[in-house]
């Protein structure tokens, strides 16, 4: 009974945040920007129209960078606005724990980011009409995309808990996400011995594995552990910055 009550509060917070997303313009702006960018990658840069290759690789390859910018834009207001307006005082004097707040906001962002992916299923439909699409990488790609969205959401919520200023929260979020994404590209400068270790920290490596259609527990654990660290970090900051 106690544990049901526990999840209830978390879900109430999630629901409230989702409602606010869809009743304010910011969600729609981010949604539109995301679809425009991914559409550009899909229709303009992808080999699909030039070579008639039936695959979505370009889209999935671009996703970590696109998400690095759009997800922090989705999450930036979640806690920093509460701090700015003072409503955090009301929230934290209701019978909820800091974990309820951090998880509720993280889940709301994850659901929202996952919903952003839904319209991109149009690309899948388009490609599969024209050519024969290999379902493995597509399914893997979407599972990876949701995990990636969740991971960036947790980072974004963490960034949002740091500052009262949404713009600063956004920049910190983008900074962390981009760094994790870019580690892959810098491996090249490192001595061969430590490349493997650094590669493991890079987000692109794990995302690529999954989007090839190979679901490995090591990759899943990578994403889940970043989420855990970010959520616990958020809890810690909410507790200390009062």
């Amino acid at each position: 009974m106690k544990s049901r009550g526990y999840f209830r509060k978390m879900l109430v917070i999630m629901n409230k945040e989702l409602t606010v997303y869809f009743t304010t313009p910011i969600a729609y702006i981010v949604f539109a920007a995301f679809l425009l960018t991914t559409g550009f990658y899909f229709f303009v840069l992808s080999p699909f129209f030039f070579f008639g290759q039936a695959e979505l690789r370009e889209f999935f390859d671009a996703l970590p960078v696109i998400f690095s910018i759009t997800v922090p834009a989705v999450t930036m207001r979640l806690i920093s606005e509460e701090r700015h307006t003072g409503s955090l005082e009301i929230l934290m004097t209701l019978p909820v724990t800091s974990l309820d707040v951090a998880m509720g906001k993280f889940l709301a962002a994850t659901v929202f980011v996952s919903l952003m992916l839904v319209p991109t299923l149009m690309y899948v439909v388009t490609v599969s009409i024209v050519g024969s699409l290999d379902p493995g990488p597509v399914a893997g790609g979407y599972i990876g995309a949701v995990l990636l969205g969740a991971t960036f959401s947790s980072i974004g919520v963490f960034a949002s808990s740091i500052s009262k200023n949404q713009i600063i929260a956004f920049m910190i979020g983008v900074g962390i996400c981009i760094t994790l994404t870019m580690i892959d590209y810098f491996l090249f400068f490192l001595p061969a011995g430590i490349v493997k270790a650094f590669q493991y920290f890079g987000l692109g490596y794990h995302f690529k594995n999954i989007s090839k259609g190979i679901i490995d527990t090591r990759d899943i654990i990578y994403f889940l552990s970043i989420i855990a660290v970010a959520v616990l970090g958020t809890v810690k900051i909410i507790e200390e910055r009062r």
Binding site: R8, K9, V12, I13, N15, K16, T19, V20, T23, T24, T85, G86, S87, E89, I90, T93, L94, P95, V96
Partner: peptide, 23 residues
């Protein structure tokens, strides 16, 4: 609280429903 920092972007009924749900 002093300045009544309740969420500005919610309808009054939704806000009270939200607090009732949490409580």
């Amino acid at each position: 609280p002093e300045s009544v920092p309740i969420y500005g972007d919610m309808v009054v009924y939704d806000y009270l429903k939200y607090v009732a749900d949490i409580r």
